[in-house]
Design a protein around this nucleic acid. Structure first.
Lengths: 164, 164, 164, 164
DNA sequence: TATGAATGAGGTTTCATTCAT
DNA sequence: TATGAATGAAACCTCATTCAT
């Protein structure tokens, strides 16, 4: 808390004027970030016309957010270790994100961009998982700057699949 | 440390006969777990004949491991917040896992099970990401028991892709 | 201080316009209460004609004050733990109370209501101690309402003594 | 807590090996002191043959205890301000003391040392109150050393009463 | 070698006080 | 004059680590 106060340029006690405890501060931060990310993702998604475009915008947004908020994402990852209330917030956020992707999948099926026999949920897992894994590698491990990340390939592969 | 000692049925001080610090204990545990997971994954993979079979075994192994070691996986997730040395171990473990999957992809291309024009790395992201996301949902959120998790669907979707 | 300000319906900072510190506020409050109690006690005492009547009025006043100011009395009790200056005020107040009782004793000796060989100080201890102990029990522990407290018995016993 | 640890010649954390919290430490101390006082009072009481002797021993013990444990008594007085659990312990201790005195009164009535028409409870109030008030004055205010305190007078007055 | 009582740095939280408005 | 947001010293408590046995 002392460190956070110093970073914020305020006194240690001032934090407690706005957050009842360290845990509540965490909770609010998490809620804020998840909402922010969720809104941003929706916006990114809506910039695309076709599903391929949408996914590329999503991938780009993923990478951008991860680069800008690397520390927060790392903290959010440990949230499972915190109390039950925080976990609930976190899972709710993840559910919201999944819902956006799933809506996109359904719409794409209607527009005949995706196979109509797809299981919506499984398709959503493929999309989120592949994009996240790609993003994690490019940003965390390769530490590549945003401009150098090419999203077309991963999106293409998700859509076309791997089979011969 | 006291809790760990009690669980291990030894004295608190005895831990320090074997590990210099809590951090080192963490490190060893992480190393051990990643190696164990890695070996198990390889074994699971090798049980399958075709790439589809292999991936189903991998997905099953993923779920099994997560169920049995839920607490360790959660701790591993927070590893990013620990010191640099631990992070290195963690990333090395992830790299090893990725290598296994990539070798599998390459072999499948040789056997003409996968498209030969695939980018190996991107294909690996799709596979790992989708399997992980699927497993996370089924185990963490749906809290479904191992026997009730159906892996065929997710594997089929990864291989066939989503496009119409 | 925040709580006090809220109860008083003023801002927290406003208290400091009237009292230099929490300690001073305490001091003033204590002084005020002791003076108020002292005056009230004198008045009660003077309502009685005989010593027996006087003591009954005192006992009634004791109980009344304790019921109405239970919280303040509790705070006053902790005053010993506060700084030397407060202690002085407190002791001065007690001395004043004692003085009232002792004057009453002396007057009663003159009027031949009390034995003339009495040590004034010791008689005062008997009176104050017995009345206080009685009051403490009836109000704090028995939690009896004012109207139900019978003062005659205790006064009679003080005056007549215990011996066969 | 730091101060207590220092006084005890141990580390701050060591206290917490023996007491779960500051409040529990308080509680144990209070319980210990009340029991100690109670036992000592009973012993003192039993040293006397007649009621007058018993009361003189009690008065002496009161003064002795107050001199030796002045700080603890002051802390115990503020106990009303602490939590409910502590208050219960405190009141239980006071009740035990009262019980000892009341038993003494009853016995003295049987032995025809005290008037048989006495109300036991009221007599107990007279005794405890007068002895406490006397002790408080001599020790706290007069600050007289133990040897110089004369207990005969107060006891005599309690027994004989004040009336002409 | 194994132990756990003792330690104290460091963490969270409170609250009397200040001061800009 | 009145305010209450900001402050930080100081309080309580935890827990990784040590060391005498």
């Amino acid at each position: 808390m002392e460190y956070i106060a110093k970073e914020a340029g305020i006194g240690k006690g001032t934090i407690y004027e706005y957050f009842a405890s360290k845990e509540r501060l965490f909770e609010e931060m998490l809620k804020f970030c998840m909402e922010e990310f969720c809104l941003g993702l929706k916006k990114a998604m809506d910039q695309g016309e076709t599903i391929a475009e949408k996914l590329q915008y999503c991938s780009h947004y993923n990478a951008e957010y991860l680069i800008d908020h690397m520390d927060i994402v790392e903290i959010a990852m440990q949230v499972n270790l915190l109390n039950e209330e925080l976990r609930v917030h976190f899972l709710a956020g993840q559910a919201a994100i999944r819902a956006h992707y799933m809506a996109m999948v359904k719409e794409a099926k209607v527009k005949a961009e995706l196979r109509v026999d797809l299981d919506d949920e499984l398709a959503t897992f493929c999309i989120i998982g592949a994009l996240d894994e790609f993003c994690k590698q490019r940003v965390f491990i390769d530490q590549r700057p945003l401009a150098e990340i090419d999203h077309r390939g991963i999106v293409d592969m998700i859509l076309r699949g791997l089979k011969y």
